[in-house]
Simulated assay, not measured.
Amino acid sequence: MVVDDAGFPIFSQIYEGNKSEPETLKDILERLNKDASLEMAGNLPMIAMDRGIATKDNLKLIKEMEFPYIVVERRAVEKEYVEEFKEAKETFEKITPGTNCVSSGTESSKESVYVKKIPIEKGSRVLCLSEGREKKEMAMDELKEQRFLDDLKRLRRSVKKGNIQLVEKVGIRVGRLKERYPSIARYYDIHLNLDEDEKR
């Protein structure tokens, strides 16, 4: 679908459901190239893509056809900008929901988005911090942590009741919990305290 600056559809195309997006990209670009002269006074539209379609070959095709584009990168690069993100709310541009304005202030907002454009070779990279996503991810992490701790408590009760006695079996259960909650377990040190018989 192609939309104008106000978000209203200009035209769209429906493709067969059994075709992957990368396979249809060339056809889409060719049609856009053709229709741009008719519908958009020769102005090529901005191509917005998710990481699933943003392969090297597809990006090469888009560049060859000289379309402007914005894409979610396939590789995680946020770790390269840890320091920038630490000061994002003070140094990035702030986009306030429900308005068309961008500011550099610190006005309060429930779910603002902070962005910073960084020039890179043959283009730019946009760093983005979303308060809404940040809150959602924090809530998900809190839920995972609570489930992790609840499972540890259940394991501890099972050991105390004697349902699990061998050290090896306890270790296996702990290992499974770490596999189930890898993003949470890494922040915890779990120690096994053995009784006199070194069974539990």
Rank of each mutant, 00 (worst) to 15 (best):
Ser12Lys: 08
Val159Ile: 13
Thr96Ser: 03
Ile118His: 03
Glu179Lys: 14
Thr99Leu: 02
Val115Trp: 03
Arg133Phe: 03
Leu38Gln: 10
Met140Cys: 13
Gln13Ser: 04
Glu107Lys: 11
Lys34Asp: 13
Gly171Thr: 15
Ile172Asn: 10
Thr96Ile: 07
Glu64Met: 15
Ile190Val: 08
Glu121Thr: 12
Ala139Pro: 06
Glu131Met: 15
Gly171His: 11
Arg176His: 07
Glu66Lys: 14
Ala41Phe: 14
Asp35Arg: 13
Ile14Val: 12
Glu93Asn: 13
Glu179Trp: 07
Leu29Trp: 03
Leu32Arg: 01
Thr24Leu: 14
Pro22Ala: 04
Cys128Trp: 00
Val126Asn: 04
Lys161Ala: 14
Lys94Phe: 01
Asp189Met: 09
Leu194Ala: 07
Pro9Asp: 05
Val82Asn: 05
Ile28Asn: 01
Arg173Lys: 11
Leu177Ile: 05
Val167Trp: 01
Leu29Arg: 00
Asn163Tyr: 15
Leu59Gly: 13
Arg133Val: 08
Glu137Ala: 09
Val167Pro: 01
Ile53Tyr: 13
Gly42Cys: 07
Val167Ile: 12
Val126His: 02
Ser158Pro: 00
Arg156Pro: 01
Glu145His: 01
Leu166Phe: 11
Lys135Phe: 02
Ser104Met: 06
Met49Lys: 04
Glu80Thr: 05
Leu25Phe: 02
